[in-house]
Design a protein around this nucleic acid. Sequence first.
DNA 1: CGGCAAATTGAAATTCGTCAAGCGGGGTGG
DNA 2: CCACCCCGCTTGACGAATTTCAATTTGCCG
Lengths: 232, 232
Amino acid sequence: MDNDCLSCPVRDESLFGALPEEAVRRLNNPAENLVIPAGEVLYRENAEASASYTLKDGVIKLTRTAMNGREQILRLLTRGDVMGLECMLGQRYNHTATTLTPVQVCRLPLTVLKRLQADNPALNHALLARWAAALQQVEMLAVELGTKKASERLATFLLFWNERTGGHDDMPLPLSRTETGELLGLTVETVSRFFADWKRRGYLSEKAGVVYLHDRNALRELSGGDTSGLLG
Amino acid sequence: MDNDCLSCPVRDESLFGALPEEAVRRLNNPAENLVIPAGEVLYRENAEASASYTLKDGVIKLTRTAMNGREQILRLLTRGDVMGLECMLGQRYNHTATTLTPVQVCRLPLTVLKRLQADNPALNHALLARWAAALQQVEMLAVELGTKKASERLATFLLFWNERTGGHDDMPLPLSRTETGELLGLTVETVSRFFADWKRRGYLSEKAGVVYLHDRNALRELSGGDTSGLLG
DNA sequence: CGGCAAATTGAAATTCGTCAAGCGGGGTGG
DNA sequence: CCACCCCGCTTGACGAATTTCAATTTGCCG
């Protein structure tokens, strides 16, 4: 199993990017490399939080369940993102982390993080930046949910996800209709209807979990505003 | 003007609560004490961020404006809360901060914060905790907006705000109907209608900006779930 | 090929926003 | 001191947007 942190392909994008090689070397490869299929729960809301995770490849959703039983997706994570940092504050996990695709993650036990933090003050800045980025993302979601209507939210999301995944015309969308609704505060049917409508109009097409954007401008107008800065 | 940080009545609740007396003393009262009437803007979204602020008394809203012009209230701040911490990350302000009541705040210039952080590693933990709390709050808002209907959101908010302000039957509510709508993703009219309805049913009454909760249980049922943990 | 879950579609019901009108109170100016 | 005005709140009627319910259809995996 390859768990050599020094040669890790996502090291620059990860928390360890903030550390000097020397410090990483001293770690002696403390991270446990995990390969997980789609649809698995990595950790669950309110469970004892004893480790954080770095996503090396794949997509993960962070969700929370409302008291009425409905679920809300709060963030979508891609390569380089870190989750479960709340363990450092002695909290339980704030979300349920579920894989949407096959995934490669590194498990960082809390003990290791603590030690790293003690030895490398520089890490603190990186940690703050992570929290800030997470806050930024959730704030944008809240603004979407609070100020826009269904079609605007969906169009905005498609453009956002497109940028996030590289901006190509073909874009893997690892969310089911239901999940898209859980992210945007909509029902399956509403999501489905807008997809159908936009396909009919030729704005986009879809095949095997991949969305092809044919008319970004149309979507941009539907979104009711630009999407600059949505990347967080 | 009283700007003696050592004897500050909110010191324990503030960031400085994490610092030893010694360190606070060395600050030599760097914080500028401000008294501001209701309805003033403390700082504006996207403005150069050169200071953060600690709220000693009063209520402040943090808002963001969507591209379509509609406003979203993202957080409500009360005694002990800190705002504008994004200045430490070299960012511009992420929100507009507006006073909802007359307010007392302490202005902490970025330079002072930087110095404090360099001298007191303990501060980093307090900072992380602040970001975490903010994230927690916004996540709860997003869940409300994404999973609940109008009456549920409004009832939840009233109970939430009641706990937040001490849990007494009489509760100052410094938000206009419009602002309540901007927080909960509703129109003025919708908010007004539910207030009227609940007054008719005897669940609550109102006088001069103070709401009296007569039947918390009714509101709890309307809210569609309990409100535990809403305090963040 | 069969079976199951997800997606689609339609129709009816509901919620909520929009538009329009009226009310009321606090503050200002006469 | 009073009248007026402005702004925020309320109320009603209407319609649009979205959910809900129900019935198919599609696509995927064994």
